[in-house]
Design a protein around this nucleic acid. Structure first.
Lengths: 248, 248
DNA sequence: TTTTCAAAGTGTAAATTTTACACTAAGTTT
DNA sequence: AAACTTAGTGTAAAATTTACACTTTGAAAA
């Protein structure tokens, strides 16, 4: 199936997105089965990151947003560029070549990809009932196995970047519902940072920042004392950022 | 002057390098006068970052290294990727278009550039006596004026990245001679971070890290007490990095 | 040779931040 | 009513960070 892309698709530059989601205990990554996505007529169980060639008239961020919209139906997803991946060998695994020849108009073309990571609230992402969803799968970020192309490398970089940002920018909230318990927030941080965070100290520190506001809502349907829900106030964060703020 | 580039030069992807140098008190950036570099027959006083289209068979880092080698004669320069810049408008200033039409085989091509920053010991960079050097100029990093293309944006990103890394990775030493005084190191950090660092505390902290070793050498030719020179021990840094090291 | 100048080099006490740690409270299920 | 599960809370010790000023040393000038 050779692509029927817009003529203005650029053969040399693509974007690939590491979409993170948090299910309450594990940090997951969204992967696609490329042979099903692309309706190939041969078997190939390779998983890859969602991605595509860019169009010549679109910005890189736009391209990444487009890819995510096509995949999830979501707009305004949190997106962060993590850099360019351009090894001349990045598309030279045997299966990758087969795939390129089946799908690309010029399979020999040198392709540089721009990596992004995206954060979505996994609850907002409704798996579409159509065949569309059949090629999509969530995997624990450290259990993805060997992906196609250089996509393992991109995930590693994305994780680094995510950890780096987690205590500098208020990005964790992107992965949670609008109203969340401190336990959810704690689990998220603890999971992303690889464990070892003290629960009480974490709670104190987060509250001290002043950009969590308590709501009058509580957890529901849990078989124990329900936790109070909090919400993140972006304005307070902006404020704090101006005046020598230290998250941690 | 249309370029006589290797055929395998990729029309859609370039690299641009923000080369930082430190002269003892100011952080400088290396810029080129593009009309002189490219022997154009019209006047154009625009300054730009050193950069070039990549070749199809070379890695992105290789391309950046090549650009720096061509410019400075130096190999093994410290290089760090800072990301891709790909706005469709990034080459649309009037003067930029004139330049593209004079120099590029396909001036309309969409070009994504991969930004790098490089750190060099300014003393090692001998301005070549030939005409080669005539198009090169050092400028204070915050006094570069309006550059061609989107190169101001790239510098801003480079500075951010540099500041970010300065206390995490031992990159400051790249800008200094092998043997340096603590005063030089202090000035460097203080300049890059925008001032306000306490001199005594800085000295203590740096020594405490354990990856500075004192030499038996002293400053020479200064009209006051000569400072002891130190040297950076990469092995000690690697060591410290493994065991929960915190620079700051 | 003495004085002057400029930067090198040094220590401490107070404030702040970080860390380690365990029991009571509240709601649900049995 | 008892048992279970997670929510929610405080403190003291240790470590780190901060603020701050005088003495030393060598070269240059007088």
């Amino acid at each position: 199936m050779i692509e029927n892309k817009p003529i203005n698709s650029n053969p040399n530059v693509s974007v690939d997105c590491v979409v993170f989601g948090f299910d309450g205990s594990d940090l997951k990554v969204l992967l696609v089965e490329r042979y099903r996505r692309d309706n190939l007529d041969f078997q190939d169980d390779t998983l890859v990151l969602p991605g595509d060639l860019i169009n010549n008239n679109e910005d890189l961020n736009e391209a990444a947003s487009r890819v995510l919209y096509d995949l999830t139906g979501l707009k305004k997803i949190f997106l962060q560029q993590i850099g360019a991946f351009g090894s001349p060998k990045r598309l030279t695994k045997p299966k990758d070549i087969v795939w390129l020849e089946a799908v690309r108009m010029n399979p020999e073309a040198r392709v540089i990809t721009i990596g992004y990571y995206a954060l979505i609230n996994i609850k907002n992402y409704k798996v579409r009932p159509s065949s569309f969803a059949k090629h999509v799968v969530w995997r624990g970020y450290d259990e993805v196995g060997e992906l196609g192309f250089d996509h393992n490398e991109i995930i590693v970089k994305a994780i680094h970047n995510l950890r780096d940002q987690l205590y500098r920018e208020p990005i964790g909230f992107e992965l949670l519902p609008n109203h969340f318990s401190l336990h959810q927030l704690y689990s998220l941080y603890n999971e992303i940072m690889g464990g070892g965070i003290d629960r009480r100290n974490f709670r104190r520190r987060m509250l001290k920042t002043g950009f969590l506001k308590e709501t009058e809502e509580y957890q529901e349907g849990v078989p124990h004392k329900p936790a109070r829900l909090y919400t993140f106030i972006p304005e307070e964060f902006e404020n704090a950022s101006k005046n020598n703020f230290k998250f941690y």
